[in-house]
Amino acid sequence: MSGSIELIWGSGPQIFKFGLGQFRALQENVNRRRLAIGAPLLGPMDLVEALKAKNVWPDDLRDILRIGLIGGGMPARDAHLEMAQSFDDTPPVEHIKPALAVLLAGLVGPPTAAGDDDAKKKTIAASAVQSISP
């Protein structure tokens, strides 16, 4: 499934997926907050850069992961419960790497082994995730 990735996160292995619908929901949430305070609007690549720089709003991290869980097939109610249990009472910086992996999987596909037709772009995505220190 294009745009999906399985990660060990929260209560265990989770499937996250970002397709067009998930990107639309993310943009609506992220930019609604910014419009309310007159901050510049962000696109997906702006969020990637913010994640890489560790300069991302906690609600943006939360939305990436929550929307990705729903896109991966988790019912919305369960995704909200997972976020309450696994995100809300933890330091946001712990979630930067998973959020970056989820967002990049939606943009370029999940990291794969060499030999894949899209291996180069996916290797770049994997390198971007690995470059974030814990």
Rank of each mutant, 00 (worst) to 15 (best):
A76N: 14
K97W: 07
K54L: 12
L51I: 05
H80M: 10
A79V: 10
H80Y: 06
L69D: 01
M83K: 08
L65I: 12
H80E: 15
M74R: 07
G68R: 01
H95L: 08
K97F: 03
S86H: 08
T90S: 15
D88Q: 12
A53C: 10
P91N: 04
I64R: 00
M83P: 01
D59W: 09
R62D: 03
P75C: 01
D60I: 03
K52Q: 15
L69E: 02
A79H: 07
S86F: 04
P58K: 01
L65G: 02
Q85F: 07
D59G: 09
V56A: 08
K97H: 09
D89G: 12
D63T: 10
N55E: 14
R77D: 15
R62H: 07
K54R: 15
A84R: 10
L81F: 05
D78Y: 04
I64C: 04
V56P: 08
M83A: 13
T90D: 14
M83V: 14
D59N: 14
E49D: 09
P92E: 01
K97V: 13
A79R: 03
I64M: 06
T90Q: 12
I70W: 02
E49N: 07
V93K: 13
K54Q: 15
E94R: 13
R62A: 06
E94Y: 10
G71Y: 08
D89C: 11
F87N: 02
I70C: 09
P91V: 07
D78E: 14
K54M: 14
E82A: 12
G68D: 11
E82L: 05
M74G: 11
N55T: 11
I96E: 00
R77E: 15
L69R: 00
G71H: 06
H95N: 12
A50G: 05
D89V: 06
L51Y: 03
G72H: 03
T90V: 12
G71D: 08
A53S: 13
A50R: 12
N55S: 15
N55D: 15
D78I: 06
R66N: 04
I70A: 08
A79E: 07
H95A: 06
E82N: 09
P91A: 08
N55Q: 14
A53D: 14
M83G: 04
H95C: 09
S86A: 15
E82D: 13
R77I: 14
Q85A: 10
A84L: 12
A76Y: 09
I70G: 02
L69Y: 00
V93I: 13
P75A: 01
F87L: 04
A50P: 02
E82P: 11
S86P: 08
Q85R: 13
I67Q: 00
Q85M: 06
D89M: 09
N55V: 05
R66L: 09
D63C: 05
A50M: 10
H95P: 15
W57G: 04
I70H: 03
E94S: 11
A84F: 11
P92N: 00
M83D: 07
R77A: 15
G68K: 03
H95I: 05
D59P: 04
